[in-house]
Design a protein around this nucleic acid. Structure first.
Length: 491
RNA sequence: CGGGGUGUAGCGCAGCCUGGUUAGCGCGCGUCGUUCGGGACGACGAGGUCGAGAGUUCGAAUCUCUCCACCCCGACCA
């Protein structure tokens, strides 16, 4: 037993760290707060990317690329924006090094100071809106629907692999529209697109909603968010979509001429999901034996492990295994046949379990004699023996079952850990004893929200979009409220 | 930036308090043999500027001082 994980119930945070490292997803880098994403972890990110990219293109968005560096002056243009991001920016001040005259190392060449410092993008609204000014003149140029896949840097105090790192990978969409209604429609379209992706590909149920004033994006009129619940009862924001109103158009003077020759400021949105989703995927489904990956995002969906003594046996087994692999591959399934003789079967079983491969097929001498294979599913750890001739259909259906089962299990967990409370005492008790999402009435003021968050660490995750209107009293102030909001302790 | 802690082989650690041959252990790694249906076993082997610098001493991983790095807890956050 080489790679044992901390048990979730002993220390959930440690379990997560162990898992990310032992499943070869990522490791810490020499640079504080930054991670090295290893091939297996990156393969998951690539699956996420590929599907989202397809969905975004299908809804009319085009990819482009904007610079990593943003002139400092761009930042000051939008007041709210600068206020929020100023405290976590990395800044480039010089462009040259020179030999240290006193030693062997290198030092910054003070003669190579930049006239205007460059900020490493924490997000790209400013440089994009600076550019959009030149791209947009007429209503004929609208809507403008741009996405970019990029890295960004936010100088974080405390970091955790995938969940919060100083540098992370994401996609950021930036759109411009002629009307307010159209921009809001775009903002909502993206929230729904993210929801579709996270529920149907990642297998994680979400709550869609609006952010409160305190929690919304700096520079946005409204922020829509999708919130997910992790196995330890903490919430994780999985994606955001912002209706920016005319704030950035005003700051960067982006106007268009309408059909009647009149000039108007354009309406904007921006939205993104990040490599944090990999962390969500790990925390939402996995168990004490390792990762559990939904088939739709698993880099390897099926692994075939031969069990043999000697080359004669291996040859026979390989004949069967290669045939199975070929048939599955024809059905669009990604299969790995692991015939390495450097590792034992038991070692391979444990390794693929740790890495969350949804289905394992074992083929040994008994199977050759009987015309069977052994099939093990990762999510519920069951094994069955089936006839070789039925295998392709069986696996196709099994992968569908696993995908559905993972989602149903996560949804059941989410539902069981969502509580309605009507008093502040119950609120604190549930938070302490169970965690999870708490649906409670709130008087709508930032002041109350801040007090609750200071006293309990719980924040308003969102004001649900599909929440029913319901008369009630704020759990903190007793003032009237007509809708419950979602509270939780969040990542 | 406050409060706590840790730096010894690729990884995880012991040794330090009470200085003394050649600095140990587990995992991992290499070779050979037996194994192979849930992380095999045995034998042999390779691998170290003990975070850095200065000091005390006949002698420092061990004592003293300075510096550096990282981790955990708080304030910030996708």
């Amino acid at each position: 037993m080489a790679k044992v994980l901390t048990k979730r119930e002993d220390n959930y945070a440690q379990w997560y760290n162990d898992l990310v490292i032992k499943a070869d997803l990522a490791e810490n880098s020499p640079v504080r707060g930054c991670m090295i994403i290893k091939p297996y972890g990156y393969a998951i990110w690539e699956k996420i990317q590929a599907e989202l990219d397809r969905m975004l293109k299908a809804t009319g968005h085009s990819n482009a690329y904007f610079p990593l560096f943003i002139p400092k002056s761009f930042f000051s243009r939008e007041a709210e924006h600068v206020k929020e991001f100023a405290k976590e920016c990395a800044i480039v001040t010089h462009y040259r090094l020179k030999k240290d005259p006193d030693g062997k190392g290198l030092i910054v060449d003070e003669n190579a100071k930049l006239e205007e410092e460059l900020i490493i993008r924490p997000t790209s609204e400013t440089i994009i809106w600076h550019t959009f000014k030149n791209w947009i003149q007429s209503y004929r140029d609208l809507p403008l629907l741009i996405n970019q896949w990029a890295n960004v840097v936010r100088w974080e105090m405390r970091t955790r692999l995938f969940l919060r790192t100083s540098e992370f990978l994401w996609q950021e969409g930036h759109t411009a529209h002629a009307t307010r209604e159209e921009a809001i429609e775009e903002t909502e379209k993206i929230v729904n697109l993210y929801t579709d992706f996270i529920e149907n590909y990642m297998g994680i149920p979400v709550i869609k909603g609006l952010k409160s004033e305190n929690e919304k994006f700096a520079g946005a009129v409204d922020t829509y968010a999708i919130e997910t619940l992790m196995q330890d009862g903490k919430a994780l924001q999985a994606g955001t979509s912002h209706f920016l109103g005319q704030n950035f158009a005003r700051a960067f003077d982006v106007k268009f001429t309408d059909k009647n020759g009149k000039q108007h400021l354009v309406w904007a949105t921006s939205w993104g999901v990040s490599s944090r989703l990999v962390g969500a995927l790990v925390m939402a489904h996995s168990d004490d034996n390792g990762l559990i990956l939904p088939p739709n995002l698993a880099p390897i969906q099926v692994v075939i492990v031969p069990i043999y003594k000697g080359n004669d046996e291996l040859e026979k087994i390989s004949g069967v295994a290669e045939q199975i692999k070929e048939n599955l591959t024809k059905n669009g399934i990604s299969v790995k046949y692991d015939d390495r003789d450097t590792q034992k079967p038991g070692w391979k079983f444990a390794e693929y379990e740790l890495k969350g491969v949804p289905v394992r097929i074992a083929v040994g001498p008994r199977d050759i004699a009987n015309g069977t294979v052994e099939i093990a599913r990762r999510d519920i750890l069951t094994k069955e023996v089936i006839r070789q001739e039925n295998i392709t259909d069986h696996i196709v259906n099994l992968l569908k079952d696993i995908q559905a089962g993972i989602f149903i299990k996560a949804r059941k967990f989410r539902d069981e850990n969502t509580h309605k409370v009507d008093t502040y005492e119950d609120f604190k008790r549930i938070l302490r004893e169970k965690g999870g999402f708490i649906l409670a009435h709130w008087d709508g003021t930032s002041e109350t929200e801040k007090k609750i968050s200071k006293e309990t660490k719980a924040t308003i995750r969102c004001i649900p979009l599909d929440g029913k209107q319901e008369k009630g009293k704020c759990i903190y102030t007793g003032k009237p409220s007509n809708k419950r909001v979602v509270f939780a302790i969040a990542y």
